[in-house]
Amino acid sequence: MIKVEQITKVFGKNPVLKNISTTIHQGEVVAIIGPSGSGKSTFLRCLNLLEKPTEGKIYIKDREITDPKVNILEVRKHIGMVFQQFNLFPHMTVLENVTYAPQKVKKLAKGEVEKNAKDLLAKVGLSDKVDSYPSQLSGGQKQRVAIARALAMEPEIMLFDEPTSALDPEMVKEVLDVIKDLAETGMTMVIVTHEMNFAKEVADRVIFIDDGVILEDAEPHQFFNAPKSERAKDFLSKLL
């Protein structure tokens, strides 16, 4: 589904990703773990070209998206993304947030889009917030709207960039539950997270990135119980 071939990303003179390669299969849920500043978010953002790799190639369903001739917007239509800071559109209601892109980008009819949006909002438990503005919602509710907004485009891949890092502790679960439900539908997902228990429970694979390099790529129980690299052992020992 996603094939990453030797990508490097340099900001100024600072290499953030160094020659990273990996393959993510259809339906796989991959957790990306690593210390702050390790490059894990940058890696995720390369997958929908919010960051353009300095070198290397990325293929999605055998199509090279890093080819300069590729229409980036077309690629992004099929890849949903959820951000740490939610990034809801503050001047639009919850419903407008969810319906805007399908209407504008996919040119779907308003009635159909709204029905679909309401179904999605019901799925994330926010049927009663349809006409609210983002400023009237809690962090957990905002993030669930953001997930519904991404899903409204019916993406084939979902990217999550630390979806619970900006939340109050008591709101983490409601968001993780939604992501967990989504994982069970067979969606291909890549999740940058600091929630180790969640990664253990939901992910099919854990990728550990440190200093721009993939140090481990393993099944969760193997990674958490018997990490190979010293760096990963050290990292895990510092967590609760």
Partner: peptide, 24 residues
């Protein structure tokens, strides 16, 4: 983050500016 959210949804430049960035 507003631009990034719009880009991630595949929204083209013109509607992004007109409907998302300029109103704010």
């Amino acid at each position: 983050g507003q631009v990034e959210a719009a880009e991630a949804l595949g929204i083209p430049y013109r509607p992004m500016m007109l409907n998302i960035i300029l109103p704010q």
